[in-house]
Simulated scan of single mutants.
Amino acid sequence: MATAVTERGRAKSSRRAAIVREAARLFAARGFSGVSLEDIGAAVGISGPAVYRHFASKQALLAAILVEVSERLRAGGEAVLEQEQDAAARLDALIRFHVDFALTDADVIRVQDRDLESLPDADRNRVRRLQREYVELWVAVLRGIHPSRSDAGLRVRAHAVFGLINSTPHSVRGLRAAPGEDEVRATLEQLARAALTV
């Protein structure tokens, strides 16, 4: 009996992850208001109403996408800082981590940019708080690189580099003769490092 429950739980978790992934893809392509629960259900092979077994509403699904990715970013940044002690090594590891995120989750970045305001206030505030905490991890590392700079100036650097990294996967995707992912990754890491250490 326990095995059946475990398999059922695993299947439910897998279906939920598929719904989140396809919703992010569709929201990125068409915007939150341009996608229905029926569209999302069809993308994962279920009916629109069946989505309600996993999410109370389309807004709850959007919240899952944006809150979960914000939690993952903060946790990933914290893990980087635990693994590295030297400021330069920490910065390199943070850059690699964020570039990997941007290349892996480009759809989620687009959803965040366009549809954050569609969240209820409580969820939107939670996303913003998590993102501020993620930025502060970068500021703490940058303080070790630029001890004479103000925290406000270090935040400007961090946000500028997020803009650089987060926008590139979208622009590269549309180029006919786009470089391979390895080249894009190396270029982003090099540019981010240069911007943050100059």
Rank of each mutant, 00 (worst) to 15 (best):
T3H: 06
T3C: 00
V5C: 02
K12P: 05
S13F: 01
I19Q: 01
I19W: 00
I19L: 12
R21T: 05
E22I: 03
A23V: 03
A23E: 08
A24P: 09
R25V: 04
F27R: 02
R30E: 10
R30D: 13
S33E: 15
L37D: 08
G41N: 03
G41E: 09
A42M: 03
I46N: 07
S47L: 04
P49K: 06
P49T: 05
A50E: 11
V51F: 03
A60M: 10
A63W: 01
A64C: 11
V67Y: 06
E68V: 08
S70N: 10
R74K: 09
G77V: 00
G77A: 10
L81Q: 09
E82I: 05
D86W: 01
D86K: 03
F97N: 11
F101R: 05
A102I: 10
T104Q: 07
V108A: 01
I109Q: 08
R110P: 02
V111P: 05
Q112G: 07
D113T: 08
R114C: 09
R114D: 11
S118M: 11
S118V: 05
L119W: 06
L119G: 08
A122L: 10
N125W: 03
V127N: 04
Y134F: 14
Y134P: 04
L137S: 07
V139I: 11
L142N: 05
R149T: 13
D151P: 02
L154E: 07
V161C: 02
N166D: 13
V172D: 03
G174V: 10
G174F: 12
A178E: 14
G180T: 10
D182L: 13
R185K: 15
A186N: 15
L188W: 01
E189N: 13
A194V: 15
A194N: 14
L196Y: 11
